[in-house]
Design a binder for these strands. Structure first.
Lengths: 212, 212
DNA sequence: GGCAATACTAGAACACGTTCCTGTTACCGG
DNA sequence: CCGGTAACAGGAACGTGTTCTAGTATTGCC
């Protein structure tokens, strides 16, 4: 229950690692179950946020036994982090479709992060559910969370160097921005700032940190 | 259970707001109970972290009924956030005893934040418990969390302007540093980085952000 | 001192994440 | 086709945060 280690991806669970392999070896019925589970999760999270994603309810809506749900996703956290991974993946491909506009580095980063932030805020309850899961993630989901962070980092770094010219510390700056981004989401979830403040604060950080 | 609002500090709970008043009106027996509860909480958290702080166990060790515990602290989150508030308060007075040494703004901030970080890491499990609570805080503890943030912000701002000369954006920069500080703690709790990396990353952020 | 209101105790009860058990079904090598 | 193994269904059971109830003690007020 604590943040203790875990066997390095035993052959037991067909899921747990979204990254790659082992998903190939699934039968089509299994792929369908996994998809139904994620669909149900997104539906419940969109409607009622983190608390509304109840494992029994997810299982029922997915037409899957509770034990099976746990076989595919060993915890509620895994389930929601997986949802976030696929969500962020979609976001990344959409945002990266074209080069971010803007003459300065700050402008381009602003463009990308504002789009991302607004995209998430369009479904506040879903975002609440996913961000809460990211916060609560322990070592057993570290790999997935790192993957999500990596995806967002790529987005930011690419925006910073518009065409070429990589600037020193780009990666570190992206990491800081992501920390701010994340911390501001938490402040919003914690009722300390409201949705509009989230972007205002992130933008302020960009202006202060991303220099040309 | 969700982040919905709540009555603006009803007369029901003698605690909930650490800030001020209402604590005055406590009898000495009540002050003693509150102290016992916080002591038990710190002991359990120090020994076993967030999961070890079990409400029944806290009640038992405090020699208080479970219902009474909930009267003083309406949730586990409130309990641990209160613990963190008093912990940070102690930290602040200790650190602010003397002016931070260092010739540059960055050096002074580094000094203060390193001391704070190391101080917390001396009790990793306690820190884990408190940080987890801060993350999970919903609107009902927003005021206390804001207070904690304010305390840390003061610490940082004061370090930045060593003697006089307040520099533009000091407060905003302090906020960013605190976001980084917090996000790095979460990364550590999530098993994505280890304890030594926490300070390394924070220091890197200071170097990049706090300019002279 | 007496009385009403409030605080406290002890413990049952509830909700939801998680685990476990029992029986059934689907797949796979011979 | 057959037997065995892994996956699944259905559902009971457990742990812990939280709530609720009934009875007892304390406190504040006249």
């Amino acid at each position: 229950m604590t943040s203790t280690a875990q066997p390095p991806v035993g052959t037991a669970h067909p899921a747990a690692d979204i990254s790659s392999a082992a998903l190939e070896s699934e039968t089509s019925a299994q792929r369908a179950r996994r998809a139904r589970i994620l669909t149900a999760t997104l539906a419940l999270a969109s409607r009622g946020g983190y608390d509304a994603v109840q494992m029994r309810e997810v299982a029922e809506r997915s037409e899957v036994a509770l034990g099976t749900l746990y076989r595919y996703f060993p915890s509620k956290i895994h389930l929601l982090v997986s949802a976030m991974a696929s969500e962020v993946e979609g976001l990344a491909t959409r945002v990266q479709k074209r080069q971010a506009p803007g003459g300065t580095r700050a402008e381009r980063v602003s463009f990308v992060l504002e789009r991302s932030t607004r995209s998430l805020q369009r479904e506040p309850l879903l975002t609440e559910a996913m961000v809460r899961a990211m916060m609560a993630a322990d070592a057993s989901v570290a790999a997935q969370v790192t993957g999500i962070r990596q995806g967002m980092s790529d987005l930011i770094v690419q925006a910073m160097r518009g065409g070429g010219d990589p600037v020193e510390h780009d990666v570190e700056i992206a990491a800081i921005l992501q920390d701010v981004w994340f911390a501001r989401q938490i402040a919003w979830l914690g009722g300390r700032i409201d949705a509009t403040d989230v972007w205002r604060d992130i933008h302020q950080a960009i202006v202060l940190i991303v220099l040309d």
